[in-house]
Design a protein around this nucleic acid. Structure first.
Lengths: 156, 156
DNA sequence: TAAATAAAGTTGCTTTAAGAGACCAAATTA
DNA sequence: TAATTTGGTCTCTTAAAGCAACTTTATTTA
């Protein structure tokens, strides 16, 4: 039925999920990061229905994750390009990718080897760090004034 | 229709989204990180229908993101607790939260102030780093052998 | 110049999942 | 023993996903 929306939620995670938290949106952003820009390419790479792709692209453009620009080659053509807001999803995508690689590795295939252009070295494992740059887990954090929406506790 | 599933995808992002990429799963994990453990609490905090919550909890348990443990108080009681795999979603949640705070700030409310227990200081902004610990963006990365599933290019 | 092709949608129909709310069973407490 | 609490299940309605066919505009190709 109708997926609930969280536009007005006071939780920024819920608001973020409202924009890119459905099945396709993040995959579209991912492929845009790979360099995909055209409607037909998204469609073929993702195997997504055209009407759904239309809808998702339009919503991503509405939310300023993508921008639609004319690219006058061949038939009527457009390109969908990441905005700064869209590129800023890079840590989210990388965190998801690393989680997937760690906990659900492909049985046959090695994880994607992402490297930094400047050093030629693999990208580091993404982690949450404290002010001193030390990695921390969910057990290390707390909310000062216990102002957690709908809950009373502070960590797991 | 049926939301497509990606169990067998050779893309680890797709596989990750298959486990936590629907509207509710990540929010459930988020609240579990806040300390929520019981069915009724999830239900009230999230405002989710009970049958959907049942389904999502069962799936998260199947995928070993949560574990269901008996906690014999009151009526028949269980607790849903994060596994290590579930706690490992911390960077994903934090990355999403920070993206939401940056690009869709709540008009009235300050972003959630997450702090590190050890230092009392706020948690750092999460970022992708190269081997030297320098922050990098999506434009700085490439895939050595151009082995990108379904695509030909390497970055946006 | 006409026909064929391609890109980007749109429309209609079918299937599936989400949501609301009623109902239910086991253990607890009063 | 009766009322509650917890954690579900069942049914029904509605909305969204998927498929396939059709449209439109522009661009090649014949």
């Amino acid at each position: 039925m109708a997926r609930k929306r969280f536009d007005d939620s006071n939780c920024s995670v819920a608001r973020a999920l409202n924009q890119v938290g459905d099945w396709w949106s993040l995959l579209i952003v991912l492929h845009a990061m790979y360099g995909t820009r055209r409607f037909v390419d998204f469609q073929q790479e993702l195997g997504i229905a055209k009407n759904i792709l239309c809808d998702r692209l339009a919503r991503l453009v509405d939310n300023e994750v993508l921008k639609k620009v004319e690219a006058g080659e061949h038939g009527s053509r457009f390109e969908y390009r990441l905005t700064e807001k869209g590129r800023d999803l890079f840590p989210v995508v990388i965190a998801l990718r690393q989680w997937g690689d760690k906990w659900n590795p492909a049985p046959d295939e090695a994880p994607l080897d992402l490297r930094d252009r400047a050093t030629g070295q693999p990208v580091q494992t993404i982690q949450v760090q404290n002010a001193m740059g030390e990695p921390i887990t969910v057990r290390d954090v707390f909310v000062p004034d216990a102002r957690i929406p709908g809950s009373k506790k502070d960590s797991a």
